[in-house]
Design a protein around this nucleic acid. Structure first.
Lengths: 237, 237
DNA sequence: TGCCGTGAAAGATCAGATCTTTGCAACCGC
DNA sequence: GCGGTTGCAAAGATCTGATCTTTCACGGCA
């Protein structure tokens, strides 16, 4: 899942767009580089119209500008829309991966406690149940040492929490959390067996949310993130 | 500022795109609505190619999907890339304005304290100087009751802080802060004369950042946001 | 030296053609 | 009568190539 956007329809567009995006993000096309529509078209074996469509999308992401008589100019990194899922994916796919994970992690440390607080005020019964189930799964799977399944439950927990915050912007960040958690698991930054204390903290969050205790939920979530940070630091050393 | 994207180049594209975006965000085109390329083209008096380019951009923002034999379908709100500056702008421009400001405010309460913490660890001398200058300006302008200029200094303060965090994703959220602060000022949610205590808190942040005291910076920023929330609640009542 | 005019490069926009996929409905056999 | 099959046509996907417009760059002129 998630290799290429779609199989049949819009395949060409997605292909060229991904190729260009990865080249820019990966540094093969550094800021200031100037392309021409015709050049892009020829290089990727597509028509100018198709190249234009891709460029328009890139432009909408702040990654290039198009000017008459000049061409397509790659913009500096600080102009990119770094919250665009595609940009995140490209960065994670390239050499920028480590930096991107750090950024996402710092970001997460900001918004997840807030989400927990809001969730405590707004979560419905179904969401509380999903949270509890996820914690339960994490406990079992963690004990069994099945890191992959554990990750799934962990992601489910955090996704549900963000959804329960009732804030669509926080909810939109669920991909960020999934990436951070997945990156940790898939880069040997996790202990062989998840820390039981971490799972207990998840349980604390779930209980606080169900109890409607915003302060406790926020605090427990903050503790989760602190624990994660120190665990990674420890494993990495 | 900010009426239309650009005057001369790419004007048509931006116009049609904005029109479509505002229609979707504003609810004139509710999720599930199906359009055709030709319909869009005719309705806006542009060629099919142009309509396609706009649709491709909308598609890249998660606002529509395109399927053969069906047409262009407007996707439900929870699929939109709500961090895209354009989506934010469209929402702020339409009837969704209030909800958008609430979302942005909640979000801000999450990431700004973290940004303050990071800035305390990473800000350079120049950034500290800008922060101090902004606080100074806020003091003077606030006393004078010049809300517009005060706003500018306030935005400058927060922008600089986010930039000093050294995290490009936090930095990318400076537009969010600007919108929240601007929205507050331009919707009579500010007292006639800014609260001196709030300005003092900004000073606390600036000093903590310069001193490299991450905990103090984070706490002071959290206090700023709490103050703002209660001030708005008070003024709104 | 510096201003101005002119040509060409490259995007902006359009018109129309061909190909592919696919929803839908008519059709057929059991 | 119902489920599967087939075939038409609608609508996007992609391409080709033409025209218009802006603007950089170079060269001539004062």
């Amino acid at each position: 899942m998630g290799t290429t956007e779609r199989r049949a329809s819009g395949a060409l567009h997605a292909e060229v767009l991904d190729a260009l995006g990865e080249q820019i993000v990966g540094g093969d096309l550094s800021p200031g580089t100037v392309l021409t529509l015709e050049g892009v078209a020829r290089l990727h074996g597509v028509s100018v119209a198709m190249a234009r469509e891709c460029v328009r999308v890139l432009e909408s992401m702040g990654m290039v500008t198009s000017r008459r008589r000049v061409g397509i100019t790659v913009r500096p990194r600080d102009q990119w829309h770094v919250f665009d899922p595609r940009v995140i994916r490209w960065r994670l796919a390239g050499r920028d991966r480590a930096a991107q994970l750090v950024s996402l992690g710092e970001l997460r440390s900001g918004f997840e406690p807030v989400a927990a607080r809001l969730a405590a005020q707004r979560a419905d019964a179904g969401q509380c149940a999903v949270l509890a189930a996820a914690v339960s799964d994490m406990t079992v799977l963690g004990r069994a040492g099945d890191l992959e399944a554990y990750l799934e439950a962990d992601v489910r927990f955090h996704d549900t929490l963000l959804a329960a915050s009732g804030n669509e912007m926080l909810q939109a960040l669920s991909g960020v959390v999934a990436e951070v958690l997945g990156g940790r698991t898939h880069h040997d930054l996790m202990p062989a067996r998840p820390n039981p204390a971490a799972i207990a903290l998840h349980d604390d969050v779930a209980r606080a949310v169900r109890a409607g205790d915003a302060d406790a939920a926020e605090a427990a979530m903050r503790a989760i993130i602190d624990e994660a940070a120190s665990a990674v630091a420890e494993t990495a050393d």
